[in-house]
Amino acid sequence: MSDDRSSPLVFLEHQSYRRNRLADAARLLPVIGAAVLSVPLLWPGADSATVLAGEAEAVRMSKAILYIFGTWAGLIALSVVFGMAARRWGQSDGPQRSGQG
Protein backbone atom coordinates (compact mmCIF):
# COMPACT_ATOMS: atom_id res chain seq x y z
CA MET A 1 0.00 0.00 0.00
CA SER A 2 1.51 3.25 -1.03
CA ASP A 3 1.56 5.95 1.56
CA ASP A 4 0.50 8.71 -0.74
CA ARG A 5 -1.58 11.04 1.36
CA SER A 6 -1.64 13.88 -1.10
CA SER A 7 -3.64 12.15 -3.82
CA PRO A 8 -6.26 9.82 -2.42
CA LEU A 9 -7.05 7.03 -4.82
CA VAL A 10 -10.58 6.49 -5.98
CA PHE A 11 -10.33 2.73 -5.85
CA LEU A 12 -8.33 1.17 -3.10
CA GLU A 13 -6.83 -2.24 -2.92
CA HIS A 14 -8.90 -5.02 -1.51
CA GLN A 15 -7.17 -4.85 1.87
CA SER A 16 -7.68 -1.12 2.22
CA TYR A 17 -11.26 -1.45 1.11
CA ARG A 18 -11.92 -4.01 3.83
CA ARG A 19 -10.19 -1.78 6.33
CA ASN A 20 -12.34 1.22 5.49
CA ARG A 21 -15.51 -0.87 5.78
CA LEU A 22 -14.31 -2.15 9.16
CA ALA A 23 -13.79 1.46 10.24
CA ASP A 24 -17.35 2.17 9.12
CA ALA A 25 -18.52 -0.72 11.26
CA ALA A 26 -16.54 0.67 14.18
CA ARG A 27 -18.29 3.99 13.77
CA LEU A 28 -21.59 2.16 13.73
CA LEU A 29 -20.83 0.36 16.98
CA PRO A 30 -21.96 3.11 19.40
CA VAL A 31 -25.15 3.55 17.37
CA ILE A 32 -25.91 -0.16 17.59
CA GLY A 33 -25.06 -0.02 21.29
CA ALA A 34 -27.43 2.88 21.88
CA ALA A 35 -30.15 1.07 19.98
CA VAL A 36 -29.92 -2.28 21.82
CA LEU A 37 -29.58 -0.51 25.17
CA SER A 38 -32.76 1.43 24.43
CA VAL A 39 -34.75 -1.79 24.12
CA PRO A 40 -35.43 -1.89 27.91
CA LEU A 41 -37.42 1.33 27.42
CA LEU A 42 -40.07 -0.75 25.65
CA TRP A 43 -40.42 -3.36 28.38
CA PRO A 44 -43.54 -3.33 30.49
CA GLY A 45 -42.49 -2.11 33.92
CA ALA A 46 -44.11 -2.76 37.30
CA ASP A 47 -46.02 0.52 37.04
CA SER A 48 -47.01 0.40 33.35
CA ALA A 49 -50.68 0.38 32.38
CA THR A 50 -50.72 -3.14 30.89
CA VAL A 51 -49.16 -4.63 34.00
CA LEU A 52 -51.50 -2.78 36.34
CA ALA A 53 -54.43 -4.00 34.26
CA GLY A 54 -53.15 -7.53 34.61
CA GLU A 55 -52.77 -8.02 30.84
CA ALA A 56 -49.04 -8.52 30.98
CA GLU A 57 -46.42 -9.44 33.49
CA ALA A 58 -43.62 -7.02 34.34
CA VAL A 59 -40.18 -8.13 33.11
CA ARG A 60 -38.34 -9.86 35.88
CA MET A 61 -35.17 -8.23 37.18
CA SER A 62 -33.06 -11.34 36.54
CA LYS A 63 -34.08 -11.29 32.86
CA ALA A 64 -33.30 -7.58 32.67
CA ILE A 65 -29.87 -8.13 34.20
CA LEU A 66 -29.15 -10.95 31.77
CA TYR A 67 -30.22 -8.87 28.79
CA ILE A 68 -28.29 -5.73 29.74
CA PHE A 69 -25.11 -7.47 30.77
CA GLY A 70 -25.37 -9.78 27.75
CA THR A 71 -25.62 -6.95 25.23
CA TRP A 72 -22.93 -5.07 27.14
CA ALA A 73 -20.56 -8.02 26.88
CA GLY A 74 -21.46 -8.36 23.20
CA LEU A 75 -20.52 -4.75 22.52
CA ILE A 76 -17.25 -5.23 24.37
CA ALA A 77 -16.51 -8.33 22.27
CA LEU A 78 -17.14 -6.43 19.04
CA SER A 79 -14.91 -3.66 20.30
CA VAL A 80 -12.17 -6.21 21.01
CA VAL A 81 -12.44 -7.50 17.44
CA PHE A 82 -12.11 -4.02 16.04
CA GLY A 83 -9.24 -3.22 18.39
CA MET A 84 -7.37 -6.32 17.17
CA ALA A 85 -7.97 -5.35 13.57
CA ALA A 86 -6.73 -1.82 14.23
CA ARG A 87 -3.61 -3.25 15.84
CA ARG A 88 -2.99 -5.46 12.80
CA TRP A 89 -3.08 -2.46 10.46
CA GLY A 90 -0.76 -0.63 12.77
CA GLN A 91 1.76 -3.46 12.40
CA SER A 92 1.27 -4.10 8.71
CA ASP A 93 1.92 -0.64 7.36
CA GLY A 94 3.05 1.61 10.08
CA PRO A 95 1.08 4.05 12.13
CA GLN A 96 0.69 6.68 9.42
CA ARG A 97 -2.38 5.21 7.86
CA SER A 98 -4.62 5.09 10.85
CA GLY A 99 -5.47 8.73 10.26
CA GLN A 100 -7.35 7.81 7.13
CA GLY A 101 -10.96 6.83 7.18
Binding site: G45, A46, R60, M61, K63, I65
Partner: peptide, 15 residues
Amino acid sequence: TMARIDASEIGQWQM
Protein backbone atom coordinates in the same frame (compact mmCIF):
# COMPACT_ATOMS: atom_id res chain seq x y z
CA THR B 1 -29.07 -15.15 43.77
CA MET B 2 -31.23 -14.59 40.72
CA ALA B 3 -34.21 -16.06 42.47
CA ARG B 4 -33.50 -13.86 45.46
CA ILE B 5 -33.32 -10.80 43.23
CA ASP B 6 -36.64 -11.60 41.60
CA ALA B 7 -38.22 -12.08 44.99
CA SER B 8 -36.92 -8.78 46.38
CA GLU B 9 -38.65 -5.43 46.35
CA ILE B 10 -36.70 -4.42 43.23
CA GLY B 11 -37.47 -7.75 41.58
CA GLN B 12 -39.64 -6.27 38.87
CA TRP B 13 -38.53 -4.08 36.04
CA GLN B 14 -39.41 -0.48 36.70
CA MET B 15 -38.00 2.29 34.64
